[in-house]
Protein backbone atom coordinates (compact mmCIF):
# COMPACT_ATOMS: atom_id res chain seq x y z
CA UNK A 1 0.00 0.00 0.00
CA UNK A 2 1.44 3.37 -1.04
CA UNK A 3 0.52 6.23 1.26
CA UNK A 4 1.67 9.76 0.48
CA UNK A 5 1.68 12.51 3.09
CA UNK A 6 1.71 15.92 1.45
CA UNK A 7 4.72 17.95 2.51
CA UNK A 8 4.08 21.67 2.87
CA UNK A 9 4.63 24.53 5.30
CA UNK A 10 2.33 23.29 8.04
CA UNK A 11 3.38 22.04 11.44
CA UNK A 12 2.83 18.63 12.95
CA UNK A 13 3.10 16.69 9.68
CA UNK A 14 5.30 14.05 11.26
CA UNK A 15 2.72 13.14 13.92
CA UNK A 16 0.69 11.47 11.22
CA UNK A 17 3.79 9.68 9.94
CA UNK A 18 4.38 8.29 13.43
CA UNK A 19 0.74 7.28 13.76
CA UNK A 20 0.89 5.39 10.45
CA UNK A 21 4.14 3.81 11.63
CA UNK A 22 2.28 2.43 14.66
CA UNK A 23 -0.13 0.82 12.15
CA UNK A 24 2.86 -0.73 10.36
CA UNK A 25 2.74 1.63 7.38
CA UNK A 26 5.66 3.72 6.20
CA UNK A 27 4.26 6.63 4.18
CA UNK A 28 6.22 8.84 1.81
CA UNK A 29 6.32 12.49 2.87
CA UNK A 30 6.56 14.42 -0.37
CA UNK A 31 5.56 17.41 -2.47
CA UNK A 32 6.38 15.53 -5.68
CA UNK A 33 3.28 15.57 -7.92
CA UNK A 34 4.02 12.25 -9.63
CA UNK A 35 4.49 10.38 -6.35
CA UNK A 36 1.36 11.91 -4.84
CA UNK A 37 -0.72 11.14 -7.93
CA UNK A 38 0.48 7.52 -7.95
CA UNK A 39 -0.22 6.88 -4.25
CA UNK A 40 -3.10 4.62 -3.17
CA UNK A 41 -3.98 7.01 -0.35
CA UNK A 42 -3.08 10.64 0.24
CA UNK A 43 -3.03 12.41 3.60
CA UNK A 44 -3.07 16.20 3.83
CA UNK A 45 -2.33 16.89 7.50
CA UNK A 46 -1.06 19.71 9.64
CA UNK A 47 -1.50 22.66 11.87
CA UNK A 48 -1.03 26.13 10.54
CA UNK A 49 -2.44 29.40 9.32
CA UNK A 50 -4.75 29.43 6.29
CA UNK A 51 -3.37 32.29 4.19
CA UNK A 52 0.29 31.29 4.59
CA UNK A 53 -0.34 27.62 3.84
CA UNK A 54 -2.54 28.42 0.81
CA UNK A 55 0.14 30.74 -0.54
CA UNK A 56 2.67 27.91 -0.25
CA UNK A 57 0.36 25.40 -1.95
CA UNK A 58 -0.18 27.84 -4.81
CA UNK A 59 3.52 28.59 -5.23
CA UNK A 60 4.32 24.88 -5.42
CA UNK A 61 1.35 24.05 -7.69
CA UNK A 62 0.03 21.73 -5.01
CA UNK A 63 -3.39 23.44 -5.09
CA UNK A 64 -4.27 22.18 -8.59
CA UNK A 65 -2.71 18.82 -7.86
CA UNK A 66 -4.81 18.22 -4.71
CA UNK A 67 -8.02 19.19 -6.50
CA UNK A 68 -7.25 16.71 -9.29
CA UNK A 69 -6.67 13.69 -7.05
CA UNK A 70 -8.99 10.72 -7.51
CA UNK A 71 -7.78 8.28 -4.80
CA UNK A 72 -9.02 8.61 -1.18
CA UNK A 73 -7.65 11.84 0.33
CA UNK A 74 -7.76 12.64 4.05
CA UNK A 75 -7.42 16.26 5.16
CA UNK A 76 -6.67 16.79 8.84
CA UNK A 77 -7.28 20.03 10.81
CA UNK A 78 -5.82 22.84 8.65
CA UNK A 79 -5.81 20.25 5.85
CA UNK A 80 -9.59 20.01 6.20
CA UNK A 81 -10.05 23.77 6.32
CA UNK A 82 -7.91 24.25 3.20
CA UNK A 83 -10.17 21.84 1.29
CA UNK A 84 -13.09 24.25 1.87
CA UNK A 85 -14.14 27.27 -0.19
CA UNK A 86 -12.93 30.14 1.95
CA UNK A 87 -11.47 30.74 5.41
CA UNK A 88 -12.02 33.73 7.64
CA UNK A 89 -8.45 33.16 8.79
CA UNK A 90 -6.52 35.74 6.76
CA UNK A 91 -9.63 36.14 4.52
CA UNK A 92 -8.28 33.33 2.33
CA UNK A 93 -9.75 31.63 -0.72
CA UNK A 94 -9.07 27.92 -0.31
CA UNK A 95 -9.22 24.85 -2.57
CA UNK A 96 -13.01 24.69 -2.86
CA UNK A 97 -13.49 20.92 -2.85
CA UNK A 98 -16.14 21.50 -0.21
CA UNK A 99 -18.33 24.47 -1.05
CA UNK A 100 -18.52 25.65 2.56
CA UNK A 101 -16.85 28.50 4.45
CA UNK A 102 -14.49 28.20 7.45
CA UNK A 103 -15.48 30.58 10.24
CA UNK A 104 -13.90 31.75 13.47
CA UNK A 105 -15.35 30.70 16.81
CA UNK A 106 -16.73 33.55 18.90
CA UNK A 107 -17.22 32.72 22.57
CA UNK A 108 -20.59 33.86 23.91
CA UNK A 109 -19.68 33.07 27.50
CA UNK A 110 -16.50 32.85 29.44
CA UNK A 111 -16.76 29.12 30.04
CA UNK A 112 -15.95 28.61 26.36
CA UNK A 113 -12.23 28.98 25.79
CA UNK A 114 -10.80 29.48 22.33
CA UNK A 115 -9.12 27.54 20.83
CA UNK A 116 -11.41 24.56 21.30
CA UNK A 117 -8.70 22.35 22.70
CA UNK A 118 -8.70 18.88 24.16
CA UNK A 119 -10.75 15.70 24.00
CA UNK A 120 -14.31 16.05 22.78
CA UNK A 121 -16.97 13.75 21.37
CA UNK A 122 -17.98 12.64 17.90
CA UNK A 123 -21.71 12.33 17.20
CA UNK A 124 -24.00 11.61 14.23
CA UNK A 125 -21.34 9.42 12.63
CA UNK A 126 -21.80 8.43 9.01
CA UNK A 127 -19.89 6.43 6.43
CA UNK A 128 -16.85 4.22 6.16
CA UNK A 129 -14.42 6.52 7.96
CA UNK A 130 -16.32 5.89 11.20
CA UNK A 131 -17.10 2.21 10.78
CA UNK A 132 -17.10 0.56 14.24
CA UNK A 133 -16.43 3.91 15.94
CA UNK A 134 -18.93 4.41 18.76
CA UNK A 135 -21.16 7.46 19.03
CA UNK A 136 -19.76 9.90 21.59
CA UNK A 137 -16.22 8.52 21.23
CA UNK A 138 -13.61 11.05 22.29
CA UNK A 139 -11.02 12.49 19.89
CA UNK A 140 -8.46 15.28 20.19
CA UNK A 141 -9.32 18.73 18.81
CA UNK A 142 -7.29 21.90 18.64
CA UNK A 143 -8.73 24.68 16.50
CA UNK A 144 -10.10 28.23 16.55
CA UNK A 145 -11.92 28.04 13.20
CA UNK A 146 -14.72 25.65 12.24
CA UNK A 147 -16.92 24.41 9.43
CA UNK A 148 -20.65 24.62 10.22
CA UNK A 149 -22.99 21.67 9.77
CA UNK A 150 -23.53 21.11 6.05
CA UNK A 151 -24.65 18.52 3.51
CA UNK A 152 -21.15 16.99 3.61
CA UNK A 153 -21.02 16.55 7.40
CA UNK A 154 -20.25 12.96 8.44
CA UNK A 155 -19.48 13.62 12.13
CA UNK A 156 -20.43 16.43 14.48
CA UNK A 157 -19.24 18.01 17.66
CA UNK A 158 -20.94 20.70 19.69
CA UNK A 159 -18.73 23.46 21.07
CA UNK A 160 -20.37 26.89 21.27
CA UNK A 161 -22.47 25.58 18.38
CA UNK A 162 -22.82 22.29 16.48
CA UNK A 163 -20.10 22.07 13.82
CA UNK A 164 -18.58 19.56 11.41
CA UNK A 165 -16.05 17.31 13.11
CA UNK A 166 -15.65 15.57 9.75
CA UNK A 167 -16.85 16.08 6.19
CA UNK A 168 -16.83 13.95 3.07
CA UNK A 169 -17.46 14.45 -0.63
CA UNK A 170 -16.63 11.80 -3.24
CA UNK A 171 -13.02 10.69 -2.57
CA UNK A 172 -12.27 13.59 -0.22
CA UNK A 173 -12.49 12.95 3.53
CA UNK A 174 -11.56 15.47 6.18
CA UNK A 175 -11.45 15.68 9.95
CA UNK A 176 -11.26 18.79 12.12
CA UNK A 177 -9.81 16.67 14.93
CA UNK A 178 -6.43 14.94 14.95
CA UNK A 179 -6.87 11.17 14.50
CA UNK A 180 -3.08 10.82 14.76
CA UNK A 181 -3.25 12.11 18.36
CA UNK A 182 -6.53 10.50 19.36
CA UNK A 183 -5.37 7.24 20.93
CA UNK A 184 -7.05 4.01 19.91
CA UNK A 185 -10.14 5.75 18.44
CA UNK A 186 -7.90 7.79 16.16
CA UNK A 187 -6.01 4.67 15.11
CA UNK A 188 -9.31 3.01 14.19
CA UNK A 189 -10.28 6.01 12.05
CA UNK A 190 -6.91 5.98 10.26
CA UNK A 191 -7.25 2.23 9.68
CA UNK A 192 -10.75 2.79 8.28
CA UNK A 193 -9.44 5.44 5.92
CA UNK A 194 -6.77 3.08 4.63
CA UNK A 195 -9.46 0.52 3.78
CA UNK A 196 -11.62 2.89 1.75
CA UNK A 197 -11.95 2.38 -1.96
CA UNK A 198 -12.95 5.00 -4.49
Amino acid sequence: MNVAVIKYNAGNIYSVVHALGRLGIQPVVTDNADIIRAADYVIFPGQGEASKTMEYLHLHALDKLICSLTQPVLGICIGMQLLCAHSEEGDTDCLGIFDVPVKKFHAPAHEFKIPHMGWDTLTKLKGGLFQDVKEAAFVYFIHSYYVAQCANTVAENDYILPFSAAIQKDNFYATQFHPEKSGSVGEKILRNFLQLST
Binding site: H116, G118, W119, D120, T121, A136, F138
Partner: peptide
Protein backbone atom coordinates in the same frame (compact mmCIF):
# COMPACT_ATOMS: atom_id res chain seq x y z
CA UNK B 1 -20.75 20.86 26.68
CA UNK B 2 -18.83 17.66 26.34
CA UNK B 3 -15.26 18.93 26.18
CA UNK B 4 -13.45 16.68 28.64
CA UNK B 5 -11.51 17.92 31.62
CA UNK B 6 -7.98 16.63 31.12
CA UNK B 7 -5.92 14.48 33.48
CA UNK B 8 -2.19 14.93 32.90
Amino acid sequence: MSLAKRII
